[in-house]
Design a protein around this nucleic acid. Structure first.
Lengths: 248, 248
DNA sequence: ATCACTTTTTGACTTCGATCAAGGTTCAGG
DNA sequence: CCTGAACCTTGATCGAAGTCAAAAAGTGAT
């Protein structure tokens, strides 16, 4: 979950890692060379598991393109998604050998990986990388806590509206499509993945999306393409404080 | 939420900040002097609000004694606890002016506060403080994600069992009370606070505690004093993976 | 275009936890 | 010891979301 100050629009990872949120910005030339030396790219197909919880993970990585999810599964199969990884998000934890969660590619995903040990050494020599990572981690913690409120206290309808609002906000590139107020975007997740994210069943997700459509809060073209005629209206359905304006 | 490697037993904040998890361990004499210069203590009575979400917060702090909670409230009054602050836990975010959550003292709480600006400067000069804070933040993120699984996918009974297990684990000092297998501890929260933590109502919390008592999973002396005759049994009720042994 | 497959929608029914409403405990202070 | 307030328990009922089942819509390969 990225911080609000680094919307996707700012990211262009074609020149990775220079533009990476985690490690760019204040890096000097020799640090960039050091990063270049330990990086490599990996691509995963849609549906492919990037790594299983408990596996040894000898790299940390940054999502360059595509969408991946972090999730936990109980023995009996119940699963809860605990993070959505969008381009520029960071995966893996310096100082930890094994992955704590399953990481799955939702679409075709390219990651820029850094070998863990050398990355940790570089972090030790370069304080601002650690500082940046701290900021990002604190942002993720805030996002996780906002999600706890959603999971613990919101109704199914509010959960769906919140998810749509979050996707709309992150998919800032499409904000101005069509004219004036309308916001248009594609759902990057299947109904089942949405359910895993929201702590619901896929049937309930489907029903609530249908209900929001019936009530005119959203329009659908196909199953994935969403049109929000009035963003304020959608935000009103989230149960969140609307003043302060996330879209201000 | 503290890391597992720093159980409460290791903490003795009488000599704060030397023994603080966040800032101790590797500090040199002059850093300790710098910390001494910017610290002050504050005490809050049970039930008192330490700080409201949105308030200006010009310090960061470490809990020395007592228990406080972090929580979010929606306009209509629904509230969700998002963190439990036990002794040695850190509150406040370097680089942020305003509090993101309500902080409330559950019991009488003493905090060791550091003025934020000088603390941030010290952090800039002393990389290992930032590193330690990153480790702690990552631990909190893991705890938050574990909590997301609980909120999204566990039944009321599993939620209660999980909370009891967590409290039992943190209250390590009392593990060996009585003989052999029994574990004994006091609940640091009222039923309503437990409900806010678990995403339930207080009635459901009460009912499920009664059910666990009826089924012999726990015994109660008064409302707060809990005896767990067989920890494995309780862990079996949490829905979590039991192998790997959190109590190993 | 057709077939096989996955994903989504919708319907009927059930269930878990919320809600509403009494009572019961515990404990501090008179 | 009594009283009031805060906290907890239990019961009856209700409703939101889960479960089970089937049909519809989309997708991709031949």
């Amino acid at each position: 979950m990225p911080s609000k100050d680094f919307p996707l629009a700012n990211i262009d990872c074609g020149d990775c890692p220079i533009r990476h949120r985690a490690v760019c910005a204040r890096c000097e030339a020799d640090e960039l060379r050091a990063l270049e030396a330990i990086k490599f790219y990996r691509t995963f197909e849609a549906g492919q598991t990037v790594i299983w919880a408990g596996d040894k993970m000898d790299f940390v990585a940054s999502v360059v393109e595509g969408i991946a999810t972090l999730s936990q599964t109980m023995e009996d199969g119940r699963t809860q998604m605990v993070g959505l990884l969008l381009p520029s998000d960071f995966v893996g934890r310096p100082g930890r050998e094994t992955a704590a969660y399953d990481v799955t590619a939702t679409s075709r995903v390219t990651m820029c990986c850094f070998r863990r040990k050398p990355f940790e050494e570089l972090m030790g020599r370069t304080p601002h990388i650690g500082q940046r990572l701290l900021e990002m981690t604190l942002d993720e913690l805030d996002a996780a806590r906002e999600w706890m409120l959603l999971l613990g206290r919101k109704t199914a309808r509010e959960k769906i509206a919140s998810l749509l609002a979050i996707i709309a906000r992150r998919d800032a590139s499409l904000k101005l499509a069509r004219n004036s107020r309308s916001i248009v975007f594609d759902l990057p997740l299947r109904r089942e993945a949405m359910a895993d994210y929201l702590g619901l069943t896929l049937e309930t997700v489907s029903r609530q999306i249908s209900a929001l459509r019936r009530d005119g809060v959203i329009e659908l073209e196909g199953k994935r393409h969403v049109i929000v005629p009035d963003m304020e209206r959608l935000l009103g359905e989230t149960g969140d404080d609307t003043d302060g304006g996330m879209f201000a």
